Each structure stands twice: as C-alpha cells, then as structure tokens.
Computed example of a mutant assay.
Amino acid sequence: MWSWVAHRITGVLIFFFLFAHVLDTALVRVSPAAYDRAIALYKNPLVNLFEVGLMGAVLFHAFNGLRVIAIDFWEKGPRYQRQMLWGVVALWVILMAGFLYPMTQHTIHELFGGAQ
C-alpha cells in the first residue's frame, strides 16, 4: 500500500517539476535577462537539496513503475510483488548513494570548503 502512495506522490512531484521547468525555460523567449535571474535563483543549497529529492523521486517512480508493469503482465508478478518491492528499494538506495556526492559536490564545497 505504501508503495502505491509513494508512486502517486512521486508522480505528482515530477509533474509539478516539469510544469515549473517549462515555465522557467519559456522565460528565455520573453526576456533573456529574466531567464538569467531565474536560473541564478536556482544556484543555492536549498534548490540543490530539491534536486536530490527530484532525482530520488524519478528513480523510485521509474523502478516502481517497472515493478507495477511486472505485477500486471507477468503471471508470477502478484506472487513476487513484495520481493520486487524490496528489490526496488535496494536498487534505489544503492543508486541514490552513488548520486548523492556528485549531485551535492558543488554545494558541499561552497558551504564547507570555500570557493572552488
């Protein structure tokens, strides 16, 4: 049940990100200076944290979606749905651990290591 809830929440979060991304990218057609200001706002540690969350949402949503497809179209899918969920969680944790430092490297150096 919680994977169903998490799948819906991550889907909505990804939708809102894409909506905001289309809007801020459309600013370049209206005013390149306004676009530059909007992009400059994104270069802060809080937004970097949101980027990590977005990556987590996309990874979970994608892997859980493949699990849902397997449950629906594989005859043994319903029997192994719990094991597949743990596989999704394990894969998500491993990949997020791998993405965490590269995604936050700039912010870590900015906050704790001085200017690059």
Rank of each mutant, 00 (worst) to 15 (best):
V30S: 07
F19C: 08
R29C: 09
V12E: 08
V89W: 04
E110Y: 11
F60H: 00
T25L: 13
H106T: 11
G77K: 05
R82Y: 09
R79W: 10
A34K: 11
D72R: 10
V68Y: 06
F73L: 14
L85P: 01
L18K: 06
R79D: 07
L66Q: 05
V30N: 04
I9L: 15
G53P: 02
S31V: 10
L91K: 03
F17D: 02
W4Q: 09
L23T: 06
I9V: 15
G56W: 02
M84R: 02
G11M: 05
T10G: 02
R67W: 00
A97H: 01
V89I: 15
F50Y: 13
V5H: 05
A70P: 04
A26M: 10
F99M: 11
G53I: 05
L54S: 03
V93E: 04
F19K: 00
W4Y: 08
F99G: 04
T25H: 10
P78Q: 06
I108S: 09
A90L: 10
H109K: 10
A26W: 08
L49A: 11
G53S: 06
N64S: 14
V22E: 01
H7S: 11
A38S: 14
D24M: 15
P32I: 03
L111P: 00
T104G: 03
L59Y: 04
A20Q: 11
G53Q: 05
